[in-house]
Design a protein around this nucleic acid. Structure first.
Length: 503
RNA sequence: GGCCCCAUCGUCUAGCGGCCUAGGACGCCACCCUCUCAAGGUGGAGAUCGCGGGUUCGAAUCCCGCUGGGGUCACCA
């Protein structure tokens, strides 16, 4: 069985090349749960060694997103820590990567490579043309004495530093997710990867490893897509003579159709899109914990504390999970329903403000009104962002006619327009003087009216619903009438009657 | 294509040799509740455990092969 020796130190190391997508959050979450479960440390590190794809502001966005889902870190760019800095470009400035690449050079584990990208591309193309199955690049300089490499470099010829991978033998490592089984690769399948670019910047394979070592990372929990490059990392640890961390490769999250992994471009999975649409961080947190991990055969709803207590790496699935927005949505609905109504009312406010239904910030009167409306839609919400749509008619007049609702929807089954108009007139008259204006009284009055007119409640209630809300689907009628107030109700009934008589 | 990983209802999963005529959840379909829609309740359809060989008294569970899916092959992470 898998034994985890504490204290553990894990990290999440995103690259600021864009917004954080949901798969990244899942990886961060698993690392966080792992650290919290074992009472270890969770570290955030920004890997910004890709000058070409760097996007200003992305790092802040990532941090905001992680905080939003409820993660916190013991060390990181914004909180500091004993092994800082926690931003790779800053670490680069201090020269640490050069120090370590020199060490490798001296040890003959790496070499200066003068082959340019273009030359390499040409070699690959040529090899392919010749029908070579797998082109493995090994630079000629790997056999040169270091002095000779340095001599050429001194002439100003640009170079990269490449790892000198062994030509024979095999490299293997264990993976916790696969039950600590070994994954083995033949060394002749590898090639001499770039460690330091021509610009002098380290590449991920090199930088992350030096940092992980210096930051005393004990376990590397990262997405499955890193498996193929792990042998290089193992080789690198060996070259340095360092103890490698324990690896655990988490299953990738596949797209809904199962065709490939989630893509920022094709899928709506930016983390900030979830708060924009009204997902509760606790719901997303819970759902994401279940993407590739499970507790038992029936428990799905778990609090943060329960998740921390129950999380274990050996219950992480090895096969890919598929993104299931429907399930997330359902779970979000459950979490919304569990919230106190007053809380929902507060959380809905920004969405209503965004739709222009209330002021931004909302006035005290608006807040009170929203608080009164919320019970009507509380259990109907699966996303907080649905609130404006559901509540719109409380703030704006529904108009029968071309720019509003179709007056035909006012007419119930088995009745025609004139009959409906007459019925609504009767309703109008009955409500005009009704006291008190309360749900029970309203219901009693309208039910009584149904009986007198020999109509089914469904017929009458349905017409009133449309007249008052402009739609056939709405919250319970009597609560709605009360919240709308007598004046607006009577006015809307009058407008509906007019529309029926005109049409 | 090379290499690596994976394989239970449409989807997420439980299952780690007998408890499985395979359990739960989402979705779907009925019915109940009911003024519409939800929520809630009850029930249902849905997986010969990818296929074929073994091992074993006994396999979804172990082994091998095949097939399928995914990942990866950058001076990106």
């Amino acid at each position: 069985m898998i034994e985890i020796t504490s204290p553990v130190r894990v990290r999440f190391a995103p690259s600021p090349t864009g917004y954080l997508h949901i798969g990244g959050v899942r990886t961060a979450l698993f690392n966080w749960l792992f650290a919290r479960h074992y009472g270890g440390q969770f570290i955030l590190r920004i890997e910004d060694t890709d000058e070409k794809r760097f996007i200003p502001g992305a790092a802040d966005d990532i941090i905001t997103s992680l905080r939003w889902v409820g993660l916190d870190w013991d060390e990181g760019p914004d909180v500091g820590g004993p092994y800082g800095p926690y931003v790779q470009s800053q670490r680069f400035d201090s020269g640490i990567y050069t120090t370590y690449s020199d060490q490798l050079l001296e040890a003959g584990q790496a070499y200066l490579s003068f082959t340019t990208e273009e030359e390499l591309a040409a070699m690959r193309a040529e090899a392919e043309a010749r029908g070579v199955k797998a082109f493995r690049f090994r630079g000629p300089e790997r056999d040169w004495p270091l002095a000779q490499q340095r001599e050429l470099a001194a002439t100003g010829k640009p170079y990269t530093i490449r790892l000198k991978t062994p030509l024979e033998g095999q490299t293997s490592f264990t993976d916790l997710v696969r039950g600590a089984e070994r994954i083995t690769v033949q060394n002749d399948q590898l090639q001499d990867i770039v460690l330091i670019k021509t610009s002098g910047m380290p590449v991920y394979h090199f930088a992350h490893l030096v940092d992980d070592h210096l930051m005393r990372i004990t376990h590397v929990l990262r997405a499955d897509e890193w498996v193929p490059s792990t042998p290089y990392h193992v080789l690198l640890y060996q070259a340095f003579g360092w103890e490698p961390p324990v690896f655990a490769h988490l299953p990738v999250i596949l797209r809904q159709d199962g065709k490939g992994k989630l893509s920022k471009r094709k899928d709506d999975v930016a983390t900030n899109r979830f708060w924009e649409r009204g997902y509760l961080p606790e719901a997303l947190f819970n759902y994401l914990a279940l993407q590739g991990w499970s507790y038992d055969d029936k428990t799905e709803l778990m609090s943060r504390a329960e998740l921390i207590e129950r999380f274990s790496i050996d219950r992480v699935q090895a096969s890919p999970a598929r993104w299931n927005p429907e399930k997330l949505r359902d779970m979000n609905g459950i979490y919304i329903r569990r919230l106190p109504v007053a809380e929902v009312a507060e959380r809905i406010l920004p969405f209503l403000a965004g739709a222009g239904l209330v002021g931004d910030p909302p006035s005290a009167a608006e807040r009170a009104y929203v608080a009164a409306l919320t019970p009507m839609i509380h259990e109907r919400l699966e996303e907080l962002g649905q609130a404006p749509e559901l509540l719109e008619f409380f703030f704006r007049e529904p108009r029968p006619g071309p720019e509003g609702y179709d007056p035909a929807t006012l007419v119930p089954r088995k009745l025609d327009a004139p009959q409906t108009a007459a019925m609504l007139r009767a309703v109008h008259d009955a409500l005009a003087a009704l006291e008190p204006w309360e749900p029970a009284a309203l219901e009693a009055t309208l039910r009584d009216l149904c009986e007198r007119l020999a109509l089914k409640p469904g017929q009458l209630f349905g017409a009133v619903r449309v007249a008052v809300s402009g739609r056939t689907v709405a919250p319970p009628l009597f609560d709605m009438l009360v919240a709308l107030g007598r004046e607006r109700v009577l006015a809307r009934l009058t407008a509906a009657i007019a529309a029926l008589e005109a049409g």
